[in-house]
Write a protein that binds this DNA or RNA. Structure first.
Lengths: 346, 346
DNA sequence: CTGAAAGCGCTAACAG
DNA sequence: CTGTTAGCGCTTTCAG
């Protein structure tokens, strides 16, 4: 309540003065090291009387660690990332780290800045989801000033830990499923093709098409952003080409597409089937529930956080450049399975 | 690339050595203070050769500020808070502060911990959204170790800045609108009534009912959580009571309720009208688009951040306990206006 | 214009 | 068991 004469917050000096002991004793008591019964009491009393809170900055300077971790993600509004945040948070909290969230909006310079900022010792480690991977990223990554885990695919050979989704396989899973349920004109709404996820999903789409004996038709593919409105607009364009299904590169796009279909009086899935990716909360929440490919957001978040924490604890000698890949899983819901086929879950 | 002999990151000492000047000169050059042309060059060259990044922790210890701000919110998955984060981020970024996001999950102890953690000097200020306000909150708030802005209502007399929504009025707006469009059995899905928002929304609901000459009917009111699934379950319960409208305390609840209605083959709004609150991205994105009450999430976020930054810059002498209130605004969409009435927006 | 030195709050040797 | 002291990296007087 009443801090030191001289204003400001109480420090170990104020406590030492008030308790009539040295600052070393204060430090020891506060850190639970040995001390005489009476010393302990006096220090603790003084500390609580003064409302002492240890200065984390000073402590960090001393021992070179902040007990803070940074998680840099492209879009805090995308439920897939929210799921990751939750998972990361769970691990870091348990491990005694605070989590610093940084929304980069997928701006390359912002991502690079975050990477470089590792050097300012504000946090002990970093998890980053770069949507695009430029040479600058690789450079910044290889000479990062602290441990980094990348969420996403990296060219092989880069000595950085990463946790990746297999969205090539995932996209193929969805397209194949659409084909299985009888769709033959499968439209594709993709995010920007200069992003890693965009590229991979297109690859999966094409591969599955080939596998199913369907021709790739430019007119059935729209490249746009990753947001809901982008999905609605793209679906609008696509509908002129009479697709019997629309596969979307994520659930936000799928949500937008579904709205566009509804608005035009088309039924899902009877007139047009819709599938998304990420299996985010959106997929479960809207009507009809959306078939989606679970790319393991939660698992990847957990894994990335664990990797980072292990690296920091420095216990297990993990090889540099460890890579984990989460297997995709198709979750079929009403937006693709026809009511008469009793194959859908939840 | 090649740090100091002795390992670790380069510091001003390494630079001083490499450039053959004193650490004071290094500091001056790096901070753009005057120095001889040659000194400047040598220091800058050394710094870039060594890949120097200033240690923010040391700087913080020196000048007592971190240039970091904390935003503690109850649920990072709720789009209304996402909107706030965006707004807060915009302001803090411009003002040169980094933003530390902390998801409390509305756990009281977590909130109190955040409040107390202001004392550890990890961030220069705090914006906090307490869902419940206990006496402990008030205590912690009044003797916080740094500037705090509360998002939400506080008992009057607490000398803390706050930015609040007027959800009493907002809820009434929605209920009145439902009445205007002909609804007479208006159900209400509310969040926990021991929360401030929960209490206020109920108050608004009751007030509007009275005003419209409708009786309050216990059977038409369900109290639950604030999430999507809670909304779906609650709507399930409510439907047995044959409401002609459901007013939900937020958009997540409304989304869940809408799904439950669809699943039972009920049409929105022909069979049951649905209205939510927050006017979040969800309301615009689903089908049919949801009527919702904009409680000014974005504006409140911006305002709170501005207040905090002004307080920190210490320029304008803002009176302690400044309170701003964002006016609610009804946004009518297809989930309540009947197609024949051409009154809806977007 | 530049260097030496103090000090931010804390922890950890090292002596007593 | 306790006190003195050095030092984490940086900024900022204060002398030169």
């Amino acid at each position: 309540m009443s801090p030191v004469p001289g204003g400001g917050q109480p420090t170990i000096v104020s406590i030492a003065r008030q308790a009539g002991v040295s600052i070393a004793s204060v430090s020891r008591v506060l850190n639970g090291l040995g001390a005489r019964r009476e010393t302990v009491e006096r220090v603790e009393r003084a500390a609580s009387e003064l409302g002492y809170v240890p200065n984390a900055v000073a402590r960090s300077l001393k021992d070179g660690r902040t007990r803070q971790l940074t998680f840099a993600l492209p879009d805090i509004g995308n439920p897939a990332y929210v799921a990751m945040v939750r998972a990361v948070q769970g691990v870091t909290k348990t491990a005694g780290y605070r989590l610093l969230l940084h929304s980069t909006d997928a701006v390359v310079d912002d991502e690079l800045a975050v990477l470089r900022s590792l050097g300012d010792r504000t946090s002990d480690g970093l998890i980053i989801c770069p949507i695009r991977v430029t040479d600058d990223h690789i450079d910044a990554l290889t000479c990062a000033a602290g441990p980094v885990v990348v969420m996403g695919s990296l060219p092989s050979g880069v000595p950085v830990d990463s946790v990746r989704a297999d969205s090539v396989t995932g996209a193929a899973l969805a397209v194949r499923h659409l084909h299985d349920t009888g769709c033959r004109r499968i439209g594709f709404i993709n995010g920007p093709s200069d992003t890693v996820p965009g590229r991979n999903r297109e690859e999966g789409y094409r591969a599955a098409l080939t596998e199913c004996g369907l021709a790739y038709d430019d007119a059935l593919v729209v490249e746009t952003g990753f947001g809901i409105e982008a999905g609605a607009r793209a679906a609008g364009e696509l509908l002129g080409r009479r697709p019997d299904a629309v596969f979307c590169a994520n659930d936000q796009l799928a949500l937008g597409a579904a709205r566009a279909l509804h608005a035009r009086g088309l039924r899902i899935p009877q007139d047009v089937a819709v599938a998304g990716m990420d299996d985010s909360v959106l997929a479960r929440s809207v009507w009809p529930p959306l078939t989606s490919v679970d790319l393991g957001s939660t698992e990847r978040g957990r894994r990335a956080a664990e990797l980072l924490v292990e690296r920091l604890d420095g216990t297990a000698p993990i090889p540099r450049g460890t890579t984990a890949t989460a297997p995709p899983r198709l979750v079929v819901r009403a937006s693709t399975a026809l009511p008469t086929e009793n194959t859908r879950s939840t």
